[in-house]
Design a protein around this nucleic acid. Structure first.
Lengths: 89, 89
DNA sequence: GATATGACTGGTATTACTATACCGGCAAGT
DNA sequence: ACTTGCCGGTATAGTAATACCAGTCATATC
């Protein structure tokens, strides 16, 4: 096989990650956050809705910076061991 | 444009990330680490040598787990603000 | 010294996916 | 009605992830 399709687990992980990002964005404008992270609004929207389940590493890092999200929480959310924010700090 | 080619900065970031991963692997067998992270040995080798400059988020998270690397250091290395391990803990 | 073993390397090929863009539509607010 | 913000569908260039290969460079082993 050349490249395996994404597993359901990976797709689920992408959904969790997207939900976290949308929640962290709170009220801010989607386009503003996207620009701050250096990605296109279209891409951010797809990540948030889970239609881009497994984005690039740098993409998520930049988004985490733009949203003031600790990297550890992003990683924990992706893994599914969704420890609350307090446990990370 | 539909998708921008990777910038030289991104390629450099990939190189740094790969160097960190290879250093963290130390003496362990490449194939063993790859299996522990759930990716193919070929892919790990390309990430370490920088031929896959911008891997998936999940890919790096799994590798960090397999190598006991704190996520924050991976992120810092990618960003270029290569704070030493001690500053992260 | 020839030969084998083991781990890495660059090259090439292939498929699935990311990242981007544009569209029409839908809901809430002004 | 008009704007604002989100949504799903579609299209496309570039890349990730996988696989196979031949070549290198040690370190053994004969």
């Amino acid at each position: 096989m050349v490249r395996h399709p994404l597993t359901p687990e990976q797709i689920e992980a992408g959904r969790r990650l997207g939900a976290l990002l949308r929640h962290a964005r709170a009220g801010r404008d989607l386009a503003d956050v996207a620009q701050a992270a250096g990605i296109s609004p279209e891409t951010l929207r797809k990540i948030e809705t889970g239609r881009l389940p497994s984005p690039g590493f740098g993409t998520i890092i930049c988004l985490g910076e733009a949203l003031n999200l600790p990297v550890q929480e992003l990683a924990a959310t992706w893994r599914g061991s969704d420890l609350p924010l307090e446990a990370v700090r």
